[in-house]
C-alpha cells in the first residue's frame, strides 16, 4: 500500500480561545499552557459528511483517480451526522463511486486502523484503490458547559487515496478496555419497554491525568514496536506524526522517545484536537509545505478513547506538490 493522493476540509468558522472566555470560566492562557491550542474550526453549519466529501474529492483529484476507480471507501469517525447510514455510504454517490463502503469507529486512532485495514485489503488482492476519510464533528458531541473538554476539540476531515505499493513498512495496533477514563455519550429516545433510568448527560468526559499517562506511554511503546518491526530506529525517522490530542502529550512523547529535534510537526495550535482527522491533516500540512520528499520515512501514532492506539511506519512515495500551498509557519516543530 502507498499513498497516492491527499486532501483535507475545514469548516470556515474559526473559534479562538478569547471567544471561549465569553462562555466559559476559562482563559486563553490556561488553554494554551495546558493544551497548546489557540483556535479551532467548528461546524457552525454544514455536516460531517460534507467535510468528508470535500476532503475525499481533493484526495481523489490529487491521486489522479476518479470515484469510479475506487474499490472501497473507508471513513473513520466518532459519529457521523446520522446513526445510519454511514458517512462513507452517504458520500459515495457524490464521489462518483460504486464500491463497498464502511465506517470504522476507532476514536482518535481511526486513521491508523484504516491504513492497516486498507493495506490488508490491497495485499489480499480484494481491492486496489481505497479512499480513506477521517471526518470528525466533535463540537457537536461536546458538553459546552464542561470547560475541561469542550475547549479541546475541533472539526475537520482529512483524506488519503491508497493503492498498491510497499509504503506501509509496519503497523502496531492495540486496544485496552478503559471506558472509565475517556468516553463520549449521547441521549437516545425513551423506549416504553425499558425501565426509566437516571438521565445521563451527553458529552465527552475525561480523566485528564490518566489519559495523559495512557497516551504518552502507549504512543511511545507503539512507535518503538512499529519501528522495530520496520527495522528502522526512531532516530532515523524523517518525521514523527503524533495524534494532535494535546501539545503536552506531543512534547512528552517526543522526550520519551528521544526524537531528533525538529522532526515532530504540530498544528494543534490552529486546529485543536480533531480526533482521527488529526494525523492526515498534519500529513497534508507537511506535504503542502513542501517538506515531504519521496523516500522520507514517517512514523505515525494515534491513540484515543477505548483506549485504542496504533502506530505505523510509512515510506512516503509522492513527489512534492508543484506549488507550496500552505506556509511553513502554519506548523510548529518539536
Amino acid at each position: 500500500m502507498k499513498i497516492l493522493g491527499i486532501g483535507c476540509a475545514l469548516p470556515p468558522q474559526v473559534v479562538i480561545n478569547n471567544q471561549l472566555e465569553q462562555i466559559l470560566d476559562t482563559s486563553d492562557e490556561w488553554i494554551q499552557s495546558r493544551t497548546g491550542i489557540r483556535e479551532r474550526h467548528i461546524l457552525s453549519g454544514g455536516t460531517v459528511a460534507g467535510l468528508a466529501l470535500e476532503a475525499g474529492q481533493e484526495a481523489l483529484q490529487d491521486s489522479g483517480l476518479t470515484g469510479a476507480d475506487l474499490d472501497m471507501i473507508l471513513v473513520t469517525t466518532a459519529q457521523g451526522d446520522d446513526l445510519f447510514p454511514s458517512v462513507s455510504c452517504t458520500i459515495q454517490q457524490d464521489l462518483g463511486a460504486n464500491c463497498p463502503c464502511m465506517d470504522l469507529h476507532v476514536a482518535c486512532a481511526g486513521f491508523i486502523y484504516a491504513l492497516d485495514t486498507a493495506d490488508a485489503y490491497i495485499k489480499s488482492g480484494k481491492a486496489s484503490h481505497i479512499l480513506i476519510v477521517s471526518a470528525e464533528g466533535l463540537s457537536r458531541l461536546s458538553d459546552w458547559s464542561d470547560r475541561s473538554t469542550c475547549v479541546l476539540f475541533g472539526d475537520a476531515a482529512g483524506a488519503v487515496v491508497v493503492g498498491p505499493g510497499e509504503g506501509l513498512l509496519s503497523c502496531q495496533l492495540s486496544a485496552l478496555s478503559r471506558r472509565d477514563i475517556l468516553f463520549g455519550t449521547y441521549t437516545g429516545l425513551p423506549c416504553p419497554f425499558s425501565p426509566p433510568e437516571e438521565k445521563v448527560a451527553a458529552g465527552i468526559r475525561m480523566e485528564g491525568q490518566e489519559v495523559f499517562k495512557f497516551a504518552v506511554g502507549i504512543s511511545a511503546a507503539d512507535l518503538l514496536k512499529a519501528a522495530d518491526k520496520a527495522d528502522i530506529p526512531i532516530a532515523q525517522m524523517d518525521w514523527v506524526l503524533l495524534h494532535q490530542a494535546n501539545r503536552r502529550i506531543i512534547d512528552a512523547v517526543s522526550r520519551r522517545l528521544g526524537v531528533t529535534p525538529g522532526r515532530v510537526p504540530s498544528n494543534i495550535h490552529r486546529l485543536g484536537n480533531t480526533s482521527s482527522a488529526s494525523i492526515p491533516l498534519l500529513m497534508y500540512d507537511l506535504y503542502h509545505a513542501g517538506l515531504l520528499e519521496p523516500g522520507h520515512v514517517l512514523a505515525l501514532s494515534g491513540f484515543g478513547s477505548g483506549m485504542v492506539s496504533g502506530a505505523c511506519i510509512l515510506r512516503w512515495d509522492k513527489p512534492k506538490p508543484s506549488q507550496v500551498k500552505d506556509p511553513v509557519h502554519s506548523l510548529h516543530f518539536t
Binding site: 499552557s33 485528564g208 491525568q209 495523559f212 506511554g217 512528552a252
Partner: peptide
C-alpha cells in the same frame, strides 16, 4: 507543577 506535569513525573 500543574496536573500534567505531575502525571509525567509519576510516569
Amino acid at each position: 507543577l500543574d496536573s500534567l506535569d505531575v502525571a509525567e513525573l509519576i510516569m
